[in-house]
Structures are given as C-alpha cells and as structure tokens.
C-alpha cells in the first residue's frame, strides 16, 4: 500500500545518495535544496526594486483616492497570484485523483500555503486601505474584501482538514477533493457577496498609465518570486517530514523484527 515505507525508494523517486532534499519542482526546475538561497536573494532584490519603483516611479496619488492607492501595488499582484495558486491547488487535486500520487498532494498543499499567504496579504493591505479610505479597519460592505475573507476561511479549512488526517494516501485523496470543491465555490462566493452582501460597491479606481503599469508588473514579478519561494519551502519541508516519518517507520519495523 504505502510505498514510502515498503521500499527504500521514497515516493518521489529522487536520488537519496547525494544528500540533497529530493523532489524537482515543476515551477523552478533543478534541485530545490541547492538554489533556495539564490531564489531568496532574487526575491529580496525584486521586492526592493518594486518598492523603489513605488516610491520614485509611480505617480504619487490618483484622482479619487490620493496616495493611499499606492498600497494597490502590494494588493493587486497578491490578488492575482492568489488566484493562480488556488487554481494550482485545484489542478494538483485533479492530478492526485488521476495518478493517486502523494507527490501531487504535497504540490497542492504547497500551492495552498502560497495562496494563503497571498490571501493574507490581500486582506491586510485591503484592511489598511480601508482604514485610509473609510476610516474603518474592516468593512463588510466592501464586496471584494469580504469575498477574499470568505475564500481565506475556505483555504484555512483546507489546512485544518489536512492536519486532521493522519493516513498519507487518505489525506491526499480527501484534500484533493476539498481543493476541487474550494475552487468551484469561488464564483458563487463572489456573486453572493456582491449581490446579497451588506451592500454598496466601492468606487472602482482607475489605475492606468505607463508608470503604473511598470510598477504593477514589477510587483507581479516580485510577489511571484516570494510566493514561489514559499511554495518551495513548504514543499521541501513536507517532503522531509514524510521522508523522516517513513524512515522512523522502518526503524520501528526493524526493531519489531529483531525482538
């Protein structure tokens, strides 16, 4: 049944002898254990570059809402990448059901973690912007922020679920199904909150112009590095946890067979 305990080769089939953390990543390629630090440094550089663009390059303030719009350079890329991450959870869930591989479950969980961080940043920046715009830290009348909050709850529940199930294969299956259902719920949540939530639409802020576009693109790139860094971190740590659990199980079986 459980091939990670039954055979010395772990589920991902990577070479163990070289001592690297196994598991090549679909997004970044190569051996993740080695290029993690460069990835982190690039992330820092990209975030710094984005901040510099926000301060020096982007126009200071737009018509309706003034300078507080600058937080959108954090908010908008995070919101876009949150959608990407949650779509990856959905796709990886389908792969789990098709291939029955625990490997895809780790990918799904790593994507969910990256999505949850992005979602958290969306909520925090949205809340801070709300304080500047309406003098309220939280406003259920803003449909987009409320939608993000409900989505956050849905994916938080994903982690409660995955922590609650001990058996590896079972957890993979159940979380895969939940990840699929979670994405299916997105459109209903969006429309329900917009139509039947607490009410008024906030002004749509026009964000155009070459400088704003540049800064948004830089933000998209910087946050892509950040969330893919988190993805790799979560993936590698989960891989390690499963490997050490498998090794411990082998130790126990060996002890049983000797006694």
């Amino acid at each position: 049944m459980n091939n990670s305990t039954a055979s010395p080769t772990p589920t991902n089939g990577a070479d163990l002898a070289d001592g690297s953390v196994p598991g090549a990543l679909p997004l970044t390629g190569g051996s993740p254990g080695r290029l993690f630090l460069p990835h982190a440094l690039i992330t820092v550089a990209a975030l710094a570059f984005m901040n510099w663009l926000i301060i020096e390059h982007a126009p200071f303030g737009v018509k309706q809402i003034g300078a507080s719009y600058l937080i959108a350079f954090y908010h908008v890329p995070s919101a876009i990448l949150m959608g990407v991450a949650y779509t990856l959870v959905f796709a990886a869930g389908i792969m789990v059901l098709l291939t029955k591989s625990v490997e895809w479950d780790r990918r799904a969980r790593a994507a969910a973690a990256a999505g949850l961080l992005a979602n958290g940043i969306v909520l925090v920046t949205g809340s801070v912007w709300g304080k500047a715009a309406w003098n309220l830290w939280w406003n259920f009348q803003d449909p987009r922020l409320t939608t993000s909050a409900v989505i956050f709850l849905i994916y938080l529940a994903y982690f409660v679920l995955s922590r609650g199930i001990e058996d590896e294969a079972k957890r993979a299956r159940i979380c895969a199904i939940y990840g699929i259902l979670a994405l299916l719920a997105y459109m209903p949540v969006k429309y329900a909150v917009e139509w039947f939530g607490q009410g008024s639409h906030p002004p749509k802020v026009a964000m155009d112009g070459a400088q704003i576009r540049d800064t948004l693109n830089a933000g998209l790139l910087a946050f892509f590095f950040l969330y893919s860094l988190l993805y790799r971190w979560k993936y590698d740590l989960d891989t390690l946890r499963e490997r050490s659990d498998a090794a411990l199980a082998r130790v126990r079986r060996l002890e049983d067979s000797r006694s």
């Binding site: 849905i154 199930i165 079972k170 979670a182 939530g197």
Partner: peptide, 26 residues
C-alpha cells in the same frame, strides 16, 4: 470524506460552513 477521520464531526463543520456562505447569504 470526514466521517472516518478522528474528530470528523468538528472537521465537517469547519469545512462545510465556509463553502456554504454563498448559498446561505442568498
């Protein structure tokens, strides 16, 4: 999905309620 998991009754509510938000609000 949850009935055969330990603590599954709580887990069911945790995963069910957020997903039901849209239809509940409607």
């Amino acid at each position: 999905l949850t009935f055969s998991v330990r603590g599954g009754d709580v887990l069911l509510r945790v995963v069910l309620f957020p997903l039901l938000v849209p239809i509940f609000a409607t």
